[in-house]
Design a binder for these strands. Structure first.
Lengths: 241, 241
DNA sequence: ATAGTCGATTTGTATGACAAACCACCGGGC
DNA sequence: GCCCGGTGGTTTGTCATACAAATCGACTAT
């Protein structure tokens, strides 16, 4: 069996496959899946493994199983859109401009508010964590190092709000940043362009200035979006800002 | 509205039971659950049903199963805090003042932004849906009717943003409102006190005035919180495990 | 003392069986 | 003709059992 990118367990493999089919639109809301025995056979697994996958997909709100009828794909309204897997599947199946805009809107709603909240309530340890992430960004030599540190920075800010509900939205920010990274063609010389923005956010949180932090974070996001549209629209043009 | 936590299949009961134990703190992060055979016996179900429950709990980030070791309760950081079930379990176990504050903060972050976005992009149909919900609130005779219409109103506003990611946060708003309703001792004479606030939001969205809608929604939430604290006697009473 | 091996423990997967719920069809009564 | 209820086939829900795979700890050989 292939273990390339699917190191997950067997049921995880099945869940991924079916989840992608549904989110990707191969099967549409209202459709009923083949019966379990058939599906299991076509996926080369036992009914046990398939059922565990279906249960998890059901928990994510993608399908609903009813005895005697079958597993029906639910309307998008019921999908757990903030689930990390659902978001990932959605991005995997060609992120449309439309979806990118929605991710940006989410960032605009969440992150400035989180930065303000963090500036209000951050502890010394939480501030230190943000600072560590910022230094890692500053010292990053490769794209991977930068990406990891960037994610760490935004996670640390969410954590500093002290509100675990807000922090759970990290999966959205993670998906958004990941999508930005793959869509924008950055070069080694420009991938640090947003460092000054991050510094402003860090300093505002350090000095406990909520409104300054909010605005700094907001302008970071706006700038990030502009940069993305610029590099996508002009194609060849490498952003230098 | 949603049958998430109502009567369910066998595995659903098991999931509910274990989920409440974990979220309620009966078993703490780091603990390992008894082995599946033992757990299944103590819960009077087969190992199959138990395993399906464990899989879903695993998908919610509450536990992690590793072969040869057992199922370990994960740190709260990994919990899918925005999951409807997790939120429900959390409120069922003990809505501490601390948690209520976090719910309020989430509303303050999400709903004003959603109202502004809805005022910007709502379609005629989406506006009509909000209007229907508002009229239902206006005409509500009982507490149940009011509650249902209120939820419908806030859901319609989220829907009018056109951003399904924002709409998925409805589970948070639903939990917050539900908790408010149970905590605040309302009487038949005062349960409509927030109707004018809702009307202001509705009108701002109708007239496509984002900032007016944002402020109206924000003041509604602030007022709601003040009303809650008032009716609870300003005293810190609920703080038991 | 350290590395490797073996065995015990626990989860992961497969298989077969039966119960329960559901749907469509059919036949009788009005 | 139309409505009603039974009836059988279909599909999921649950159970029981068996074995494979992974992990951990102790024991042994060097």
């Amino acid at each position: 069996m292939r273990k390339t990118s699917a190191v997950r367990s067997l049921y995880g493999h099945v869940m991924h496959e079916l989840g992608q089919r549904i989110v990707g639109g191969k099967v549409k809301p209202g459709d009923v899946l083949p019966r379990e025995e058939t599906l299991a056979e076509s996926l080369q697994v036992s009914r046990t493994a398939l059922r565990e996958a279906l249960k998890v997909l059901s928990a994510k709100g993608l399908i609903e199983s009813r005895t005697g009828v079958g597993a029906r794909v639910l309307d998008k309204r019921h999908w757990n859109q903030l689930d990390a897997d659902v978001l990932a599947w959605r991005c995997a199946s060609m992120p449309t401009d439309d979806f990118v805009d929605k991710l940006v809107e989410m960032r605009e709603v969440i992150e400035p508010a989180a930065a303000a909240s963090a500036a209000r309530r951050r502890t010394a340890e939480q501030l230190a964590a943000i600072d560590v992430a910022f230094r890692a960004m500053d010292e990053a030599q490769t794209l991977d190092e930068w990406t990891a540190a960037d994610l760490q920075f935004h996670d640390a800010v969410l954590h500093a709000t002290g509100n675990e509900l807000l922090q759970s939205l990290f999966s959205v920010i993670e998906t958004a940043l990941g999508t930005f990274f793959t869509l924008s063609a950055r070069t080694a010389s420009n991938f640090k362009y947003s460092l000054p923005h991050h510094q402003k956010v860090l300093e505002a949180i350090r000095r406990k200035q909520p409104e300054v932090a909010r605005k700094a974070m907001h302008s970071m996001i706006v700038d990030s979006q502009a940069n993305l549209q610029h590099s996508r629209g002009r194609g060849r043009r490498k952003a230098t800002a």
